[in-house]
Nucleic acid binder design. Structure first.
Lengths: 340, 340
DNA sequence: AATCTGAACGCAAACGCTTGCGCAACAAGG
DNA sequence: CCTTGTTGCGCAAGCGTTTGCGTTCAGATT
């Protein structure tokens, strides 16, 4: 059907091994033979079979990327950036969408990436068992989310600092009743919601504000969850005058809930999010910006570096990317206290 | 390093061919031997090498998916749904992010998917040359965007009907100056913007409204482009009282532009979008909903069906998914004409 | 002129599977 | 009891590369 390396070899009057060396830029081939082979290969439309090549060489030139949900902006953006880096380096990307628990479980028990990839980038937080499974692959590993874990290169952000800047901003505006919409019901072993919560509590304590557990609600990291959570917060006896949402998507859900309750933002309630979603600007959301695409690209680069230096041991590296508070239109000082 | 089929064969006291047949559920293996092999394979942690398997069988159990920009909601959502279908059927997904023209060109000249995939799902519109290149792969092809083309199964929507329902809605509300923000500067050979434009013109003509070329602006399918386009439309001598944006992202850009100009939606200007973006609901955008995820899933299913029936020729099939107008809060009758 | 040294290239053995074919062993039919 | 099928399994030939090693040969060194 399609041309093989032997067809090229025959047409060029050389051996298959010479063709292989020539096309991959190895030494030991004279310039004229190399050129000749290049010409012949081009006119035969020859491409080396990856299956055969990886069977023989042991390298697949393929990276496995694990994603909880490709459709979500954050993951899509990270994936996008990572893919660019990988493909520029000649690597292909095998995508695994591990949304549901069953699919996820199946993936980690069968481990279909075994013998298929040279490295794995995980955009989801593997629990201990899962990360052991990944380590058993014997390839470099990286992740862009969650805390550090042995064997993984992780690039992330300073969740504490981000949260602090957001909540402190609300405090500085004069708010005293500050709610939080968190993503606690996400996967276990995910340190992000916990760190952000701790930072939130610390800032409140620092400001001498007593913590009211009724002012925390779970938003599940989705728009709908954020809406539900905000609705809950509005139902408490003394509702918050400001809300810190642990993600922009939840913040947007909160905005929707507020609009449905005919409350004005920021006059009645201030809202601050986290991520700087591409549409945060559209809705004027004040938020903590993190370099999402950069994290994907950086993780990809670190992985490639490990592939280039096969000697070095997996360095459990940790990279922190900068965050910054972006002020827009959803935060303002609280209204002067009315008669209730 | 990791167990091979021969290790399993030896440990189970059978030949490698029997292991192969047993593990893949082929006939010609007694139940007891099959069980024995399953046990041994499990405790050895054996997974067949895909490289070796596809080299020997000619099948890769891999689907190539071509995407212009994974980070964009539409494509991320289609990809997400398609991947679920593929992986449920035992296929892996190779992702190619073909954002920039150079990358795209490189892809189609080198065609790295050759001998690597059993089928290709393209979320971008190949021009004639590109689609010829894809056909040369000799595998089933499908796309979820753009018009029909030989050799491709395409699942899409009725762009005409969608646009008509949107523009007619504005007409019915009483609008006479109806602008359009289009995505014309996208890739050539893309029929979508053209069809939508034609439908827009037809509805206007039907309603006896004269078409004003100054009321059309290019929004490049992005939020920023939509904002620019809306700004242009506001600058014409008699600005529109309503705008039809060919995508929700451009519509959101338009909303931002309107807010910056201190114009109220829908009181001063009505806006209707297209797609039903996940956040359209958050901003209350009236829009034409299309089943984005369903399109990805359906395209994937059709591809798999072709893989199961190798006999049938590529059927240049065309599937139309339903659309519907979703009324929210960005459309209303025009203001009664003031003295200006 | 004999020897040595690289560079350029071919040989052939992997790599780990799949699969057509052949061969027992055994059951059923005459 | 001898055929004719059927079932269960092993043999071995690929699949298309890569790569260690061996060979050849031109030019440099004695």
């Amino acid at each position: 059907m399609t041309a093989s390396i032997n067809d090229v070899a025959r047409a060029a009057g050389v051996s298959a091994s010479t063709v292989s060396r020539a096309l991959r830029g190895r030494t030991g081939v004279s310039d004229e033979v190399r050129d000749k082979i290049a010409v012949v290969a081009a006119q035969l439309g020859y491409t080396a079979s990856r299956s055969a090549a990886s069977l023989a060489s042991g390298r697949t030139f393929t990276i496995g990327v694990l994603v909880p949900y490709v459709g979500r902006w954050f993951f899509g953006t990270v994936l996008d950036a990572a893919e660019r880096v990988f493909s520029a380096a000649g690597y292909d990307v095998l995508l695994y969408n591990l949304g549901s628990p069953e699919i996820r479980k199946r993936f980690f028990t069968r481990l279909p990436v075994r013998k298929r990839v040279d490295a794995v980038l995980s955009l989801l937080i593997p629990d201990d068992e899962e990360s052991a499974a990944l380590r058993s692959l014997g390839v470099p590993l990286a992740t862009t989310v969650g805390g550090t874990r042995p064997g993984f290169t992780v690039v992330g952000i300073d969740d504490r600092a981000g949260t602090e800047s957001a909540v402190r901003h609300l405090v500085n505006l004069g708010h005293r009743r500050i709610g939080m919409i968190s993503g606690a019901s996400g996967p276990l072993h995910w340190t992000t919601p916990i760190e952000r919560r701790n930072a939130y509590l610390d800032v409140l304590a620092d400001a001498g504000i007593e913590h009211d557990p009724a002012l925390e609600a779970d938003g599940d990291y989705t728009v709908e969850g954020g809406e539900r959570a905000m609705t809950e917060l509005l139902a408490v006896s003394r509702p918050p005058t400001a809300v810190y949402a642990q993600s922009d998507e939840m913040a947007m859900g909160a905005l929707r809930a507020l609009r449905r309750h005919r409350l004005r933002v920021p006059e009645d309630v201030s809202v601050v999010g986290f991520d700087d979603h591409e549409l945060a600007d559209v809705v004027g959301l004040t938020t903590v910006a993190q370099p999402v695409a950069d994290q994907g690209a950086e993780a990809a680069r670190l992985l490639l570096r490990q592939l280039d230096e096969p000697g070095a041991e997996p360095p459990t590296e940790q990279v922190q990317m900068p965050i910054r508070l972006v002020l827009r239109e959803t935060t303002a000082p609280p209204r002067p206290r009315g008669p209730q």
